[in-house]
Structure formats: C-alpha cells, structure tokens
Design a protein around this nucleic acid. Structure first.
Length: 903
RNA sequence: GCGUCAAUAGUCAAGAUGGAAACGACGAGAGACUUAAAAUCUCUUCCCGUAGGGGAUCGCAGGUUCGAGUCCUGCUUGACGCACCA
C-alpha cells in the first residue's frame, strides 16, 4: 500500500488539467437551459512582489469550491482571474526597488499565476488580463470619456486630502478615521489642487435604495447605508439683523427651532467675508478689535490638520461675531458665532444652535454661557424644568423613549403638538413664507478621481486654451450635440459643468489607448503635479476640435478605475484571446513595447459584446475581504448604474450575492507581516503537505467569514484526513466488488450514511458553510473506517465526487487510478440522492420528565402517541420519576416526548 | 458617542425554524506497532463514581415557556466600521 504523498502527483495532475483544458468556460454547452449559468468571482488581486499569501488562498479556494460544485451540478460556470496591477502599492514598491513599475509587475504576475495553479484553482486562464494591459485600459479610458460626456466628470480646483508621503491627492474613502492614508498609514493634509471629480452624489439615492435587493452581508449593507448617509430635513433662511443678508441653515429637527438660541457659521463660510465690514464696527470691551478676534480664530482653524481636529474633537472652540440674526418663527434675536465644529462640506455650512436638544450645541453653549432652552418634553410632564435638571434632553433619546408621547413646549402656537405634527406644520409654514424648502442631504461626497502619480491609466483628455477662450465646450461640438440628443433621456448635462469644462475635449477614440509612456523618472513630484507633467513632448498635442496646440491631461486614474468594470471584461474577453499577456515562456514582452491591441477589438462602440454580458452578468457570487465595503464595492456599483443609464448594460447592480472572507492571522494572533517575521508562505505549505491539505484546512477551520489563526498543527489534521482517504481507497476490504460496473446496490446503513453526507455537503456548500461540509465528510469517513464496514465500488466513487471541490488533486488521482476514468472528475456529475433513500424507518425519541432527558425510545417513525407513551413508561429509568404521580404529556411528533408532573 | 456583529470544553469550533448541548479538528493522557523515534492505529479527555448511574454547564443577571445556547429585557467584554453629518 502506497503512502499518500501529494508532492508526487499534484504537479502531474495539474498538467493533465491544462492539457485537457478542463476548466475552459463552457458557454452553456452542457446545459442549454437559459439562466442556468453561474458567475463565481473572487476580488482580483494586486500582484505584489511578496507573492500569494495564505489569506489569498482562502478567498480563492472558497470561490473555487463554489465553482467546482456548480460545474458538477451541470451548470455553466464562469470562473476567471486577472490582475489589478495599477495603483499606489505597485508603484510604491517599485520606487523602493528603484525600478519602473512597468518592469516589475509582469514578474509578480508570473509568480502569482504559478502559485494559483499549484493551489488547484480552476480558472479559465484564457480570459486573463491585467488592468495595466493597454488593450484593457483602452476601454477604461473609453468609459471615462463616456462618463465625461454624460456630465459626470468635471475638473476643478478643490481642497482635497493629500498624502505628503505618497505625494498624491486621495478620495474621501481612502482616508482612515485617524486621518491617515489607508495604503501607507502616514498622516494626511489638505491641499488645493485642480482635480478630476466624479459626481457620484447624483447617484446617491439610487446607490442607497438599490441596496434593498442585494444578498450581501448585513454589516456591509449597513456600512454603505451609513456612508451614503441620507438625511431628510429642511433648509431655511435666517435674516441677519439690520442687514440685507440671510443665513441658510439645514436642519433635520425643525420642530426644535424655538430652542435655537444661537447661530453658528463654519470658519470657511463665504458670508463671513461679506460681514467683515460690519464686524469691524462692533464695539468690544477687550483690547483686540472684534475683527482681529474673528480673523485670528479663522486663521487658526484653517491651519488645523485633520488629526488636530480629530484629537480636539470634543473640546469645541469658537468666536462671537457681535452680529445677530432673526429666528423667522418668533422674530427672536440670536447671536451669530463662528466655530469649526460646523463643517463647510455638509449641509449649508451654517447651523442653528439648539442646545436644549443637541449634544454638540449643548456642549458649546455651556462653554460660552449661551441660553439653553428645551422645547420638547414628555406629555405627562407639566413644567419644562422637570425634563432634566440641566435643561438638556437629547433629541434622539427623548424620541426613542417617548415617541409620539413627546410634545412641544416653549413654542407658542405649536405647544402641545407631537414632534412629528409640529415638524410637518412648521415645514408648511416655511414653504408658505418662501423662506426655505424641504431638502435631502447625503453624507456621500463627490469622488476625487485624479491621482498625481505615474502608475495609472492616463486620463484621456486634452485641454485647449484657444477653445476655452472662445467659450467652447465639448457639448458645443457636433459630436457633443449628437450625444446630448441620443441620451436626452438621462439627466441633462449640468449647465455649470458645460461652462466649467470649456476647452476640455476627450482625445479621439481611434487614438485610444493613450498609452502610459515608459519614463526614466516616475517618482512623484513635490509640487503635487503628476510626473507626466514633466514630459513636455508627450504633453504637447493638438486640439481634437480646432486643431490648435493643446495640452494633455497629466493626472492619472486611481487604482479603483480598473476594478470598476473588470468583471464585465471577463465575460467578454478580446476575441483573439490567445493574446495572453504572457508569451509561451511565461515572460512578458518588455513593457516598453507592449503592443497596442486596439485593432483586435471588433467594435468601436462597446468594450464588450452584448450577448456575452447578457449570458453571464450580473455576478452571482462575489467573494472577497470586508475592507472593500465602501470603496471598490461602492464605486463599481456607481459605474454600473451609469453604464445602465448610457444603455450599455441592461442591469444596474453588478454583484447579486456577496460573501466576505475572514482574515488569516498568524499563529501569534497578529497580522502576518514581514516585520513580525510570522508570514506563512503557501508554497512552503504546499511543498510539505500538498495543496489539498492547505485547501481543506483553510475551508475547515472556521466559518468562511470569520477570521482564523494559522495553525500548522491543525493543518496537519487536514493532511491526516486526506491520508486516511488515500488509505481507505487502497484497502481491499473497504470497497466491495471492484471493477464492478453494475451500480445497483443495497441501501445498507453505511450507504444511507453516505447519501446523507452527500446531501449535507451539497447544501452546506451552497450556503458557503464549508467547515461543516468537511466535518460531515470526516464523520462519514470515521464511520466507514469502522471494522466491518465497506462500500460498494460504485458508491465509493460518489464520495470522491463530493470531496473533489475541496481536495481536487487527490480526488482526481483516485478517480483516474482506482476507477480508470480518463475524463476529469471535475466534469462528472454530483450524485443525485432520492429522498426515499435517506428516510429512517426507526426514529429515536428522547423522553423528558419535567424537561430533563431521562431516556430514549427507538420506535417506528409513524408511531401513535399513546403507543409511544406506553413504551416509554416501560423503561425503568423513566418510570421511576413518574410512578404514582399525576402528570400531563407533551409530544412533538418525531422529536420529543415530555412528561410534566403536576405540582 | 453612534452603528453592526460576536461570546459554547485547554484551543478552534458544531448547534436554521425553541425540543438529546457539544458533530468535527487540534492539544493532552494511556495503550498497540517499532530496538527506538517519527508516522500510523485504538481508547480516554466538564465533575462525582470501578460501573450501572447521577450532577453541572453555553459571558453575567433577570424574564417568557411544559421545555431556552436559541426568544425578550438589562448589563459585561471583545472585534469591525463610522464619527463634530446639524
């Protein structure tokens, strides 16, 4: 009997799979029923120099198990893999290594691919591409241009988050809560730079409401909801006392307006500059003039970094302007303050201070001695001072506790109304007086899309000063007019954007891809300009509209661009798909001369063939880490919605089912990191125990979405399990009637167990409950190993099939060796189990006395209650608790019998 | 502060709909094989008892129920996310 030595055959099996093209996507050939497809996708990796991580192995194996299972169900499966190779991590690594990223990425990809193959992942490699491949980013650029044409992109000078270490601007989402950059961990500052900005906010409502139909983890849905942060309220104007100015505020609690005892402006509020003259007239008792006081405060506030604002979080500061405004409801005069706890970026940048019900306003009022006036109380309370001794009652809290039973007070004619009634009535008043309107605000901000870095898709736009001077925008051109006409159904391009974007033109389509030039100096600059801006020759071009001198955009796209639509391209690869990015030796052509493949794409209209998209999309199963909850997953949803509006797609949500994978932490319970010297390399593990052991271990250790701690000991458990399988298939007395082609069999006890196992494994896999599926197989194996148990030859074959999604190498090996099969097990069929084959005739009913189990009776499954009771009472162990006492019985058919003694 | 999720044996974990708590793995102990070790196999592994058997137990405290790990209320601890969003 030979020993289980995976090293000896895994490589050979891998070659067989490749030779036989086992994992090539079958476009619905095996089952022509429409809709019988499955698109299983793992979030594709950025191919780092460190190679594949055991954490990667977990995601990819999890997706692979699904893909293999679906194939065995006879479903056509699309299971692709590619590379998200643009972006900061690749570039920072390249800078560190003093190499051009273009020269580094190909080698990394080669390593990743080799490692993935050795893991036994069943990808259709013919669909592979990298986001850095010009044939792919040609279309990323093309899509950018479509979004520009829709009016979803504009370029504007904006104060943005800037990472001084990476020397680039960042999106809101890339800044961590502690004010550092999510990629490099260094602190972030603000910088005023011209930026391409995506108007993702125009899709806020749809991004929010479409979450409803998605089968995603609850936590991720909540995070997206919170990130979009919808709040409904009212905007209304407060007159500045004695001046012809108004202050517009946004509030979600209009019912508290009688409690507004002060007004707060954000330090960046534009009104302040107009008020300066009046502020300088204010008399003060101090040495400084009021204006100096205000100016000093504003200057200090502007200098604060995000981190400073963060640490000072709770200690609010501000300055009184000496001016007043008028509450439109009661004409009360309230003081105007400037404070940096009010943000310019949200609402109107001005807030009515209601210290009676808002915790922040309360804190501020206490510090500066402002009036605290509660205006909502529980209806059972007579006087307002009883509400709380200090006069403050959190708005949310009072509503949560008293709901409809909280009423207004101190609010003139609104007194006694419920919060809800008052809010509605007051809103109507605001509307009638024409001093404001209902308004919905979102926390979601527009998406800063420029990066001042080298390693990204060049933004395919050209700026023409001459056209700008003449006030010509792209929408004034023939092409632009045609576009507007064709897409008049979608939101009309904003006039402001048309003006703002005068002089900007997409480079003509036939010139795509606009290739990233190979440069000597690709390091980011200190000026916050892209390294491409130093390439004067490359920058120079002609205006697509007027033909005069024009300048190329030199910013590049963020790494999110490529991942926003890669799942579409997998479904519809370039026709000449043999143009793999690898040549036969596995070495990339030097990137200096990667051929442009624009000529092999047949359509000038679409980056994909519609029938392919129809066949495969949307993605049925999307597996990846939870860290993308509001980055990639939000951006990709946004692009798909925009593409839907353009008529390029006929669905508007890309990922129907999302599952998160838990992290793989090191044995010492820390994150795996080079600096802790605790990284486990999958190559080493595969070398020693085989890929199957690694796969089984990672699927078995915990539920798929939970984090696991690496344990080599536990991994050996996986190896032992496979070893026992190897031994049992090689034991003459464990499998009956070898070479018997006749698959008729008695349903002996062990066979029934097998059938139950088959059913459990199937249902567990489709719920990504891999750990319990494996436990069930182990349980079955334990039973099969018992002395005297053996399986008929054809039945034992079925066990290999259900094992194969988890341990494809050993399953394939035994499939071919023991059963002499020549066609891969991956292309076989999941065993069908009839319900009648797994029904037990005898059931075991636990018998309780007062809820405690005192015995078990084995009876026919359809026994009558009276017979069951009789049998139960025959048991000494049960009878002794009941004898001579009065009782009643509760019987749950097939489950439990309970005797309840009367007290 | 807000939101989401979690807590079961020495460790990782199973336990959908309330109905036998602890499937499976790791570790530990004993034994078999071996000159020996590793590997492999067998048994034990909450507490008491040689055993039949009995008792306890699911973060803590209550409650609902014939019956609660599961439902409800309050609390504790931890993880993740958001955070001056008006």
């Amino acid at each position: 009997m030979s020993k289980y030595q995976p090293r000896e055959f895994e490589g050979e099996i891998m070659e067989l799979w490749e030779k036989e093209q086992v994992y090539r996507t079958e476009d619905g050939i095996r089952n022509n029923k429409s809709g019988n497809k499955m698109y299983t996708l793992s979030m594709f990796p950025y191919p780092s120099g460190a190679g594949l991580h055991v954490g990667h192995a977990r995601i990819y194996t999890g997706t692979d198990v699904l893909a293999r299972f679906m194939r065995l169900q006879g479903i056509s499966v699309l299971h692709p893999m590619g590379w998200d190779a643009f972006g900061l991590p690749a570039e920072n690594a390249a800078i560190k290594a003093k190499k051009n990223p273009m020269d580094m990425v190909p080698g990394n990809i080669t390593t990743f691919k080799k490692q993935m193959k050795s893991l036994g992942l069943s990808y259709d490699w013919s669909r592979e591409f990298s986001t850095t491949d010009p044939a792919y980013y040609r279309w990323t650029q093309w899509l950018f241009q479509q979004f520009f044409k829709m009016g979803l992109l504009y370029k504007k000078n904006t104060p943005i988050h800037f990472c001084p270490s990476c020397k680039t601007g960042l999106a809101e989402e890339e800044v961590l809560a502690n004010g550092t950059h999510e990629r490099c961990g260094k602190p972030i500052t603000k910088k005023d730079l011209p930026q391409w900005i995506f108007r993702i906010t125009t899709y806020a409502e749809r991004l929010l409401s479409d979450l409803k139909g998605l089968d995603w983890p609850e936590g991720i849905l909540t995070m997206q909801k919170n990130w979009i942060g919808k709040s409904e309220g009212v905007e209304l104007d407060f007159k500045v006392d004695g001046l012809d100015e108004t202050i517009r505020v946004f509030t979600t609690a209009l019912d508290t307006i009688y409690g507004a005892t002060f007004m707060v402006l954000s330090p960046e509020h534009p009104l302040i500059s107009r008020l300066r003259g009046h502020i300088s007239n204010v008399k003060t008792s101090g040495e400084k003039s009021k204006l100096t006081e205000v100016d000093e405060y504003i200057e200090k506030a502007e200098k604060k970094t995000d981190i400073e604002r963060e640490t000072e979080n709770k200690d609010k500061t501000g300055v009184f302007t000496g001016l007043y405004c008028i509450n439109p409801f009661n004409n009360g005069r309230i003081p105007i303050w400037i404070a940096d706890y009010v943000l310019m970026g949200y609402g109107t940048g001005a807030v009515m201070g209601v210290p009676g019900h808002d915790a922040r306003d309360y804190q501020y009022a206490i510090k500066y001695g402002l009036v605290v006036k509660p205006v909502i109380k529980p209806d059972t309370m007579a006087i307002r001072t009883d509400i709380k001794s200090d006069g403050f009652w959190n708005y949310e809290e009072i509503k949560a506790k008293y709901a409809e039973k909280s009423v207004l007070c101190n609010s003139d004619s609104y007194d006694g109304l419920s919060s809800l009634q008052a809010k509605e009535k007051m809103t109507v008043f605001v509307e009638n007086q024409k001093i404001g309107k209902r308004k919905i605000n979102y926390h979601l901000r527009d998406w800063i899309f420029s990066r001042q870095r080298y390693w990204g898709e060049p933004i395919p736009m050209v700026f023409c000063q001459s056209c700008k001077d003449k006030g010509i925008s792209w929408w004034d051109t023939d092409e632009g007019k045609k576009f507007n006409k064709k897409h008049h159904n979608i939101s009309k391009v904003d006039q402001n954007i048309q003006v703002e974007m005068q002089g900007w033109f997409p480079i003509v389509e036939k010139d795509l891809p606009l290739k990233l030039p190979y440069v000597q100096s690709y390091e980011p600059t200190d000026t916050g300009e892209s390294p491409l801006s130093k390439m004067t020759d490359w920058k120079k071009t002609t205006c697509p509209h007027c033909g005069k001198h024009a300048i190329r955009e030199t910013d590049t796209m963020p790494n999110w661009a490529g991942s926003c639509w890669y799942f579409l391209k997998f479904a519809s690869p370039d026709k000449d798909s043999s143009t793999n990015i690898f040549d036969s030796s596995g070495v990339l052509p030097t990137s200096r001369d990667i051929p442009s493949r624009k000529n092999i794409v047949d359509s000038s209209e679409h980056p994909w063939r519609k029938e392919d998209i129809k066949k495969w999309l949307p993605v049925d199963w999307y597996l990846g880490g939870a860290e993308h909850a509001v980055l990639h997953l939000l951006y990709a949803r946004f692009w798909v919605k925009a593409l839907y509006d353009l008529g390029l797609l006929d669905f508007s949500e890309p990922f129907l089912r999302l599952r998160n994978v838990g992290m793989v932490l090191a044995e010492d319970h820390r994150k795996m990191s080079k600096s802790f010297n605790n990284v486990v390399n999958p190559d080493d593990v595969i070398g020693e125990y085989g890929a199957d052991s690694l796969r089984v271990y990672e699927m078995f250790m915990a539920p798929f979405n939970m984090e696991i701690f690496w344990s080599t000991k536990a991994l050996q458990g996986g190896y032992r399990f496979l070893n026992r399988i190897w031994q049992i298939y090689n034991s003459p007395d464990k499998i009956n009637g070898r070479d018997d082609k006749n698959d008729k069999t008695d349903t002996t006890k062990i066979v029934v167990s097998l059938y139950k196992t088959i059913q459990k494994v199937g249902s567990d896999i489709s719920q990504t409950k891999y750990n319990t599926a494996i436990a069930a197989m182990m349980e079955f194996l334990n039973e099969w190993e018992k002395q005297g148990e053996s399986l008929p030859y054809q039945e034992a074959k079925k066990f290999l099939v259900i094992l194969s999604p988890f341990a494809p190498f050993i399953a394939e090996k035994l499939w071919r060796d023991i059963y002499k099969e020549t066609k891969s097990i991956a292309l076989s069929t999941w065993p069908k189990i009839e319900k009648k084959d797994i029904v037990d005739d005898t059931v075991h009913i636990p018998v309780q006395v007062n809820g405690k189990v005192r015995g078990v009776v084995s009876v026919p499954h359809d026994i009558k209650q009276s017979d069951l009771e009789k049998l139960a009472l025959e048991q000494e162990g049960i009878r002794k608790y009941i004898e001579g006492k009065s009782y009643k019985t509760i019987y749950v058919a097939g489950k439990i019998l309970n005797f309840v003694l009367n007290r």
